[in-house]
Design a binder for these strands. Structure first.
Length: 476
RNA sequence: CGGCGUGUGGCUCAGCUUGGUAGAGCGCUACGUUCGGGACGUAGAGGCCGCAGGUUCGAAUCCUGUCACGCCGACCA
């Protein structure tokens, strides 16, 4: 897919995908490494993307009746201990605070790896009647998980995210909310980030610690590896029973609430990079790009050129536009704009001015067109819409072309030996088969898609009767 | 947590084998010429050679320890 490589400073994808990723992250100036392993300094270009993600996602949350709150970042050990599966899932990777100033704390506290326990503890006192339900809260915050191996955005020890936590009167309402929020994520990915996803349910082995069911959206990166891009959990009344969250229902009976939680993190920026990026750097979908149009003056010291550039900026004031008036050479500026993934570039120089036009260049295709200045605004508007659509179409094609089916074990093994991507195959429902597949092939179940289909009647691992169609893949 | 690799101006690295005045390219600053795909000239600034011990008259270089980072595995958003 990579078109002509324009920037030399970035390792090509085909040569070394991991190095390409790191190069892009650095060259697009998204982050710097910090002095704490696994923690990153998110720079303006990276943070602006996150701000746009926040804004666009939060709009959709509000439309879905979500209210924002903020919980403390510390969790007392005793509180974390309350739900057994949950503690076991997170204990190996929490960071502990043991001292306040110079004195040891009576009870140590962990820095939240996720806030289920805090929300539960809060809801226990806050919810009394069916009239208090549902509670549909969300918080934007950072969490800490002491990961052993870290990579910018994909796995950092501290990361930014949002976590929604809801409480409902019935199991049905909780399930509905879980699915509703998964759809919010899926639509957001496709419509705003131009990333097509596969929606489905996680297997028992892969589900969230303490959840009854975990739903996920899975995206496929350019190298054929899967990235879990958002999750939504149905807790049933498990947490409510562990924490004692009860309410009096209409029938005057004391009942436990049903809960959900759902999250999307800065990891999604890694997905944007690995789905859309090319050998020249980052490629941002217009909807999320902090700068949508970069105007680059040519021979900017010549009479009137800079003035014209700023005049065009004014013409394009309905978009996120910048003029690069630094005293670098035009070639430098082109490379800079490409590495940063800015969707459109407008070149304006003396020759153009004489002809009453400018040159517009698409980042995603590299296509250059000459445009009459009076048409600039409408053309830019059209182009941004088209780029957004083309990027989604291209990513969807990649997903489809890298999704395979395997009817039996031999075909399954061959698929992963020869190709990279998703392989759809039948599964018997036993964790032991997932473990064997992981052990032998380094492949995990990504999800059981909502759209099920019977490819064969036997489990691709053990040959016993199959229960579910599963998407398998190598994951980040 | 295992395997491999790397720490020397802001960045990429050379120097280490065989100890003897700390180097290059890029970037940065100033001025001038340039400008349609990472321009050029001139003059400058910038280094506890990751950290701590040790050996030595003398350590970037040898020895011991330690920390950090990167990549690949096992675990996870």
């Amino acid at each position: 897919m990579a078109e002509k490589k324009l920037v030399e400073a970035i390792t090509s994808m085909s040569e070394d995908f991991a190095q390409w990723y790191t190069d892009v992250v650095k060259k697009a100036e998204l982050i710097d490494y910090s002095n704490v392993k696994g923690c990153m300094v998110i720079k303006p270009a990276g943070y602006a993307i996150w701000e746009n993600i926040q804004r666009r996602l939060d709009e959709r949350f509000k439309a879905a009746g979500v209210e924002n709150v903020y919980m403390p970042m510390f969790i007392p050990e005793s509180l974390l201990q309350k739900e057994k599966d949950h503690v076991e899932g997170f204990a190996p990777e929490v960071a502990w605070v043991t001292h306040g100033g110079l004195n040891p704390l009576q009870e140590r506290m962990c820095v939240r790896p996720t806030s289920e326990t805090l929300f539960c503890d809060f809801y226990k006192g806050d919810i009394h009647s069916y009239r208090d339900l549902p509670r549909v809260y969300n918080q934007w915050c950072s969490v800490v998980r002491w990961e052993k191996e870290t990579r910018p955005f994909l796995r950092s020890r501290e990361f930014l995210w949002q976590e929604g936590h809801t409480a409902h009167a019935t199991a049905e309402q909780a399930k509905e909310r879980t699915e509703q929020m998964l759809n919010v994520y899926a639509d957001f990915c496709e419509e705003v980030l131009a990333i097509p996803v596969v929606k489905g349910r996680k297997t028992e082995k892969e589900k969230f610690a303490g959840a009854e069911a975990t739903y996920t959206i899975e995206a496929l990166m350019h190298d054929g590896k899967a990235l879990q891009s958002g999750t939504s959990h149905d807790f049933g009344d498990g947490f409510a029973r562990a924490f004692g969250i009860q309410f009096t229902d209409k029938d005057n009976q004391l009942k436990y609430v049903y809960q959900t939680s759902w999250g999307m993190s800065t990891r999604i920026i890694g997905a944007i990079i690995m789905v859309h990026g090319d050998d020249s750097g980052l490629v941002l979908p217009p909807e999320i790009a902090p700068v949508q149009v970069m105007i680059i003056p040519i021979q900017q010291k010549k009479e009137g050129v800079l003035e014209k550039a700023f005049e065009l900026k004014e013409t394009l004031k309905n978009f996120r536009v910048k003029v690069d008036d630094s005293d670098k050479s035009p070639g430098w500026k082109f490379s800079e704009q490409e590495m940063r993934g800015i969707p459109l570039r407008v070149e304006i120089g003396p020759k153009d001015m004489e002809a009453g036009r400018c040159v517009v260049c698409r980042r995603d295709t590299g296509e250059k067109t000459e445009i009459q200045l009076e048409e600039l605004e409408s053309k830019v508007s059209e182009l941004l819409i088209r780029i957004q659509a083309d990027m989604l179409a291209k990513a969807r094609r990649h997903l489809e072309e890298h999704t395979y089916e395997a009817a039996d074990r031999e075909a399954f093994e061959r698929a992963f030996a020869e190709k990279s991507g998703f392989v759809k195959a039948m599964w018997c429902g036993e964790t032991s088969c997932e473990e064997e597949i992981k052990e032998k092939m380094g492949v995990t179940s990504r999800c059981m898609p909502f759209v099920q289909k019977q490819i064969s009647d036997k489990c691709v691992c053990c040959g016993k009767p199959a229960k579910k169609l599963v998407y398998w893949g190598r994951a980040y």
